[in-house]
Design a protein around this nucleic acid. Structure first.
Lengths: 263, 263
DNA sequence: CTCGTTTCCGTAGATCGTACGGTATCCTTT
DNA sequence: AAAGGATACCGTACGATCTACGGAAACGAG
């Protein structure tokens, strides 16, 4: 797996925020820029996955020698950081409506983002690229939750929980499409090829709950419908829970204020 | 990224369920078995991540030539499938208590599982290995939720939502530990090396919600504490939401039965 | 002892990231 | 107009890595 946040911090940050010194004018003019490299890399990865995103292919897409890329980017790890942040920059956020509406909007935009860039899931962002894309996301969600009465540390936790769930669910959904596209084998075909599993190997006695759910129609939906359902249910449940937390926090604040005013 | 579910279905299923023909007795006796290969591969990946889990290293750990592995396993993709399912087989489930208690127990065991095997996150299971490990998990969660009044298709969706959230949160937590171990750079050091970001690049005016949360102590917890908090909050919220769904479903069933008995 | 069976494994080709150093093309200075 | 410095381009080569191929080795049966 690719992991972001590996290279020299100063250099990577300079690239993320496009703080390179402006060209002096002297010297051979560049055929490509940082932005065109990132765009080409994203384009390659969109089509065939991160695995297929090799420096060779990116260079070829730009009609440039492979090593030319290294004039603009320290290495592949840094390029991936830049791709991730660029992808998040394309997220369309909305300030309209309640915090719930904003978060729901965010969730659906994230779904679309992962659909556009299925490779996002493949990149661990435990040490995230500290770029505009991810900061904008964090800022937006924190701003939305500041409408609730949650104390700062709980608001941060709530944002983390939202990001974790939404990102995971969106990534899963996108992966299915990606798997079909890359392997050239639609999901239905993949399951059909494993028909023999149910016929020859699966033992209902060993997995009674699965067998019963099957018999009662628990798997009647298409796989895709089932995932959409899980996404909606999970998001709604999560926001309900945050709502409860916020109400409790508001109560406590209120009680404290009452006590103060009673003196 | 590695993606599971790629190889020949029949062969992979045979390996997952250990349905190979028993040895005839004739021929050169094997130095290694399928199980020892899987164990060695897991051991290598545990220490250094999937990237470092090369066929060379696995073979070396078994004191065997690299190509010997291919006598027992069709290729690396299939070996990864086997590793994933073996890992999930090690999950310790519990039938004790309410469905909520069971799911919470599952969540904490999953946390431990990812802590043991941080590489799990790196493997996409959109086309999962159809082995005992994953079936046992699915069966257990479905059985737990059958205690609620949820209709089958909603129970399936609820299980999916739980798996999505728990897996993502547990994986994130594990990744932090893994990142520190592999890079040899503790999380604190990583952030320290990026101190200059806050000093030279971060613009509070552009990200007011982050700046305000910072000022009000929203980031006072250590990163690790904050994640634990997000995990607990998210799980509680999710289960609350499922509880509400179940109550509504029970109501509807009850009303339907009342109508019937009124005739 | 020989033969069939099963397993072990060395070699080699293909693909990928990137270090190194040379080359090409521009502007500025003289 | 020529020289020099700056900047960008890129061909070659090396070390990993996966795995196809085919031969060698070790066993039981006859």
């Amino acid at each position: 797996m690719e992991r972001s946040g590996g290279g020299d911090p100063r250099e990577t940050l300079r690239l993320l925020w496009r703080q390179g010194k402006p060209r002096s004018g002297r010297g051979r003019p560049p055929k490509i820029t940082l932005s065109t490299i990132i765009a080409a890399a994203i384009s390659v990865a969109d089509g065939k996955g991160v695995d297929a995103m090799t420096m060779d292919k990116v260079a070829a897409a730009l009609d440039v020698g492979t090593m030319t890329l290294y004039t603009h980017v320290p290495g592949k790890a840094e390029l991936i950081d830049l791709m991730v942040d660029a992808a998040w920059q394309s997220l369309e956020l909305s300030d309209a409506g309640s915090w719930r509406a904003q978060v729901t909007h965010y969730a659906h935009q994230t779904l679309a983002l992962h659909a556009r860039h299925p490779w996002l899931r493949s990149i661990s962002t435990v040490r995230p690229p500290l770029g505009p894309g991810l900061f904008t996301r964090q800022n937006h969600l924190l701003a939305a939750l500041s409408e609730t009465a949650l104390p700062p540390s709980e608001a941060t936790a709530a944002v983390d929980a939202i990001v974790t769930f939404v990102d995971a669910a969106a990534a899963t959904e996108a992966e299915h499409a990606q798997a079909s596209a890359v392997s050239g084998e639609p999901e239905d075909d993949w399951w059909s090829a494993r028909q023999l599993f149910w016929e020859e190997i699966f033992d209902p006695a060993r997995y009674p709950a699965i067998a019963r759910s099957w018999a009662e129609g628990g798997f009647d939906r298409t796989a895709s419908e089932a995932r959409v359902n899980a996404f909606d249910i999970g998001l709604r449940a999560l926001l309900d829970g945050i709502n409860v937390m916020a109400a409790m926090a508001a109560d406590e604040t209120h009680q404290r204020e009452s006590r103060v005013s009673e003196r």
